[in-house]
């Protein structure tokens, strides 16, 4: 009788507290809140909430979202640790896709070594995962060194509509439109300003030719008229401009080549960003 009375008396207070209060930090609510933060794009807080509940709720979707959060935050070390947890998951191929993408982002210049050293899981049978891997490997060759890869090898993993873009990247990589700094220097040594013109800086080239030519003429004319002091001043100035014109041409060619490299990498970056690093679209928020 006392037991029934106790339950009868305490039950309303319990119900009352449920109606007015919320357990903000219960496991289920933490998960709901984490999902909300994830969809809001607040990955830093989302991952903190997911990490807090992952030991209690064994769920490979949560593990995958943690991996996605770390990837979005660029915390590749932490992301990598989560991949190893997924070996028995149904989502293991998705984990692997993200692992490759993260690895590529982390160290894009050596990603192809995964392929060459056979340092990846060849047990993966899923075509889509391997396809992403091979696309990233091709991109890595384009970023670093072609290592004797043929155009067919590089282009093969890509969709038909992207192949022409990749093919043009390959051609650029194989034969970049560089200008020779040595040739620019030699040309300017023979005809002042011609090295600049060779690099495409026509205005600078013509200016260098005129200034150096004028100073040389002034030096010659003053020597002829026996104005030795002025003649030597113009000789010094002429020599200074002549040397500067050679040095300037060499530097211009180097800058030109650096710009070619920059534009090439910029093009690759743009292509990768447009393709979102070949990451599949995950729909967790609708």
């Amino acid at each position: 009788m006392i037991k029934i009375l106790a339950i009868f008396l305490l039950l309303p207070s319990c119900i009352y507290s449920q109606s007015k209060s919320i357990n903000f930090h219960s496991i289920q609510n933490k998960k709901l809140f984490a999902d909300h933060l994830f969809c809001e794009g607040d990955y830093l807080r989302a991952v903190e909430e997911y990490e807090a509940i992952r030991k209690t709720i064994k769920n490979d979707t949560i593990d995958f979202k943690i991996l996605l959060c770390y990837s979005e935050l660029g915390l590749y070390q932490q992301a990598e640790q989560n991949v190893s947890l997924s070996s028995n998951s149904d989502l293991s191929s998705e984990f692997n896709k993200l692992f490759y993408i993260n690895q590529f982002k982390k160290d894009q210049y050596s990603f192809y070594s995964f392929y060459e050293l056979r340092d990846y899981q060849f047990t993966i049978k899923k075509f889509s995962t391997l396809n992403i891997f091979h696309k990233l490997t091709s991109m890595s060759y384009l970023y670093t060194d072609l290592n004797s890869r043929t155009k067919e090898e590089i282009v093969k993993p890509f969709d038909v509509k992207d192949r022409s873009t990749i093919s043009s990247f390959y051609d650029w990589k194989l034969d970049p439109p560089y200008k020779s700094p040595a040739l620019a220097g030699i040309l300017s040594a023979i005809i002042p300003g011609s090295g600049k013109m060779y690099v495409g800086e026509w205005g600078d080239g013509i200016t260098a030719l005129l200034v150096t030519g004028l100073l040389a003429f002034l030096a010659y004319d003053n020597f002829r008229a026996n104005h030795d002091t002025r003649a030597w001043i113009f000789t010094g100035l002429g020599a200074f401009f002549y040397g500067g014109n050679i040095y300037g041409s060499v530097v211009s060619a180097q800058i030109f080549n650096a710009r070619i490299n920059f534009e090439f990498k910029d093009g690759l970056n743009l292509f990768l960003e447009q393709k979102n690093y070949f990451m599949p679209e995950y729909d967790f928020c609708n």
Partner: peptide, 12 residues
Amino acid sequence: GIACNLRAQISS
């Protein structure tokens, strides 16, 4: 049990 429940539940 009731105490724990009350403790976990907090108001806004």
